[in-house]
């Protein structure tokens, strides 16, 4: 079968110890059996490694940080589209999704660029800040949570919670706190980095499991692969993991898609105790370990592109159990002229 040519722009090209999903998403797209892809990398900083991976990314452009606003992003995308004729954009950062969701209609109408994203209501409803209510609405158990916006609220936490507890940033990062003083430290760090509010969550001890999944927006789960973290970094990120056979996890994910009609990719973070499952977080995008799904026989990024282009996708029915991903870091040698070009001209 002849592959169709598609120009796909992808964000999330960073690869620090909390890596972005962009590079694994691109690897998945490069392995597509349906699409002959030209990949346009969208980066925020000149040191995002994906920019220099020329075997994966054909051309990279800097885009403005989310703080610059949606109009600024739209103007930049107009410029990039003039040169690249983008068919599909896959944003991969929590912090940028709000703008991309808001711009989705304009992108389609004005530039014929397709996206496949949840709507604003879906996106906001699953936010960490609202997770407890969201869990109750969709029949998922969520640890007790509280939103704090002021330093003075920390003292009263011991009335509601037993230490240790988790302190979480609005978008990223979570730390365990054993004392009110530690909550204060993490509150300062997280609010300075990600803004307010900060979320305090009951600590649930158990096995950390994740599911990467994708929904068609009509209540159907197109694919899902559950993974158990094997090696966890000091930031709590999986550095290796293994696909597992857990029908409860799959049915939790399927129920969530059915009741929320979630459109696009998501990652469920779940803790399994001896006799129960607790939803800890829903990330509204592909996780950085999404390439494991490809390794297990489900190419979720390819399915996303199909759905973004308006095609029907038959849900995946199986995946390989017992496949591992083992992450590693890799030093690229880059000429100064390339670094200069992306730094000064914003494209490479």
């Amino acid at each position: 079968m002849k592959k169709r040519k598609v120009n796909i722009a992808v964000t999330g090209l960073n690869a620090i110890d909390s890596p972005g999903p962009g590079v694994p998403v691109i690897r998945a797209l490069r392995e597509s059996t349906l699409f002959d892809t030209r990949i346009i990398g969208l980066s925020y900083e000149a040191l995002e490694p994906g920019i220099y991976m020329h075997d994966l990314i054909d051309k990279s452009y800097q885009i403005p940080l989310p703080a610059a606003g949606a109009d600024s992003l739209m103007n930049r995308l107009r410029y990039i589209h003039q040169k690249e004729k983008i068919d599909v954009i896959i944003p991969n950062f929590d912090a940028e999704l709000f703008h991309f969701i808001r711009l989705a209609d304009t992108l389609k109408r004005e530039l014929n660029i397709h996206t496949f994203l949840p709507d604003i209501e879906q996106f906001e409803a699953r936010h960490k800040v609202n997770l407890e209510a969201y869990g109750a609405q969709h029949g998922l158990k969520v640890p007790q949570s509280r939103i704090i916006t002021r330093y003075s609220e920390i003292a009263s936490l011991s009335e509601e919670f037993t230490y240790p507890l988790m302190v979480k940033g609005k978008f990223y990062e979570a730390y365990m706190a054993y004392t009110p003083e530690q909550v204060q430290t993490w509150f300062n760090k997280l609010s300075a980095k990600w803004g307010l509010p900060v979320i305090v969550q009951e600590f649930v001890s158990g096995q950390e499991l994740n599911v990467t999944a994708i929904g068609d927006g009509h209540g159907n789960m197109v694919g899902a692969v559950p993974m158990r973290k094997q090696y966890v970094t000091d930031k709590g990120k999986a550095w290796s993991g293994i696909s597992i056979d857990d029908p409860v996890l799959l049915s939790m994910a399927a129920n969530l898609f059915r009741s929320s009609a979630w459109r696009g990719p998501l990652e469920l973070e779940i803790v399994r105790t001896d006799d129960d499952y607790f939803l800890i977080e829903i990330n509204p995008r592909f996780p950085a370990w999404v390439y494991l799904a490809v390794g297990c026989g489900q190419n979720h990024p390819e399915a996303l592109v199909q759905m973004a282009l308006g095609e029907e996708v038959k849900p995946y029915e199986r995946y390989d159990i017992g496949k591992l991903f083992i992450r590693y870091s890799f030093d690229m040698i880059v000429g100064l002229e390339e670094f200069m070009k992306i730094s000064t001209q914003g494209e490479l």
Binding site: G241, I242, I244, G322
Partner: peptide, 18 residues
Amino acid sequence: KNIALSDTGFVFDPSTGD
């Protein structure tokens, strides 16, 4: 039922990943 076992003594529990 689903425990995987190799001839070299490697035991894998697919439901937990252990």
